[in-house]
Design a protein around this nucleic acid. Structure first.
Lengths: 123, 123
DNA sequence: CCGTATCCAGCGGGATACTG
DNA sequence: CAGTATCCCGCTGGATACGG
């Protein structure tokens, strides 16, 4: 058993887990964090196989959760840019140990899961 | 864009995400980490509303992933105990920053999601 | 006690076509 | 360009009954 005071108590996650465990969600957070801001179709292109319906749903989830910000420039053709809120950025940082764990683990097991990686250089 | 060298590159998660994002998975990892070892029906009782079929599936996932260990004592009636492997334990620790982030965030938004918490004291 | 077998409902996500 | 509308499929997870 565990109490709320235990730093490893998982109950705090209940609210946000359905959002961030959705397919593509962490990917998009990572992408936005890295690029600063992106347009709808930019995200589509970088994800590769996400349908517009799915992307629109997930962005809505992330917007509602306050993790992502949406800026609409009232132009024609329309331009909309998505970026991380401060909350989203801190989430991204909070995920680092998990990513590190996964990376170490992959190497230990000689997994080669990197083929599907996004490959452009850091800015 | 991002590279594999970026500690925030999410591609490493691809292998494990389907496993740990399943309903109950993180809960069970947290539970086992806290109790040391648990029997099948103990887990059921602590989760409250998990069906045996679901639990058995998730345990299988976690076993295959090498996060959980299964010890069967060949007795009658049967006794089986589940516990975290070293890998599972390190995953649990890697989740701490995420949990901390979620906790801070809940407090910031005055969420009261703690009602559903596991409530026995720490050992 | 520790599961598996079976059946079923809901929904997450893909493909595609369409609109403002 | 930035989505929405529709349709459809497969998977996940619940309930229940049963087996070793």
């Amino acid at each position: 058993m565990q109490t709320v005071s235990d730093p490893r108590c998982i109950c705090c996650l209940r609210g946000i887990l359905p959002t961030i465990s959705r397919k593509w969600a962490i990917c998009i957070i990572s992408l936005l964090g890295h690029s600063g801001q992106m347009r709808f179709n930019e995200i589509v292109e970088h994800c590769g196989h996400i349908s517009p319906k799915t992307l629109s749903e997930i962005l809505k989830d992330l917007l509602d959760a306050g993790l992502v910000e949406r800026k609409s420039f009232h132009e024609i053709p329309p331009r909309v840019e998505y970026s991380l809120t401060e909350d989203g950025k801190s989430l991204r940082e909070a995920l680092v140990p998990l990513l590190k764990w996964a990376k170490d683990r992959n190497q230990r097991y000689n997994y080669s899961l990197f083929a599907s990686c996004l490959q452009a250089p850091d800015p």
